[in-house]
Amino acid sequence: MSKSILIDTTICTGCRGCQVACKQWHNLPAEKTTNVGSFQNPQDLSFDTYKLVRMNEEIINGKLEWLFFADQCRHCIDAPCLETAFDENAIYKDSATGAVQYTKTTKKLDADEIIGSCPYNIPRKAVDGTLAKCDMCNDRIHNGLKPACVTACPTGAMQFGDRDEILALAGQRLEKAKKKFPKAMLLNPDEVNVIYLVGFDPELYTDYAVASNDRGGLSRSVALRKMMGPFAKMMRV
């Protein structure tokens, strides 16, 4: 049973405990940032920032809403990045947890192709082309701990568990959220292991909140590999 995370944005306060807890556990350096007229910083995910609370102020139904979206890798069930890479030494899925893992070998991949394959625009490259993104704190999970971000979350906006439990919880949370937010929805719950619950139109949170149509398209070679299934591994098409 793979693991999943539910991120219920309707009860997220944007405290960013998760964002720092991620850096803390992974020993990631801080980025040099500037205030550009918003509380959000850094402005985007990066090789050193796997988790980013995106903040948007929107007038919705005549009311001001401050939307927080703790963006991170969705750990797709069928991960296009993994398919695109086609190199288990660079990108692989931990079958015990479902976490999609990037290794140093990603340096050998075409970084832009991998980034372009992600429907959620998540992976980021270092100057040398090595790729990085959220690893679901796979080391913690294997040792019975929750991911650092989930542990830190004060309100319960982030929940971690077995996929079936999280799916059930997501359904319950959605029903609850709909009472306050009639347009509440889960984002691609069948396709990802990191499931977002949003109260409003997902595009208001970030451009890639839901799987984007113009991204993640499989190249011919990837599609072919998929079609051929396990044999592709041997054939290295």
């Binding site: 960013r16 720092v20 850096k23 350096p29 801080a30 940032t33 205030n35 509380f39 910083n41």
Partner: peptide, 12 residues
Amino acid sequence: QPWLMELQPNMF
């Protein structure tokens, strides 16, 4: 602390 300065770098 760099991690916190990253989040709120400037007087505003």
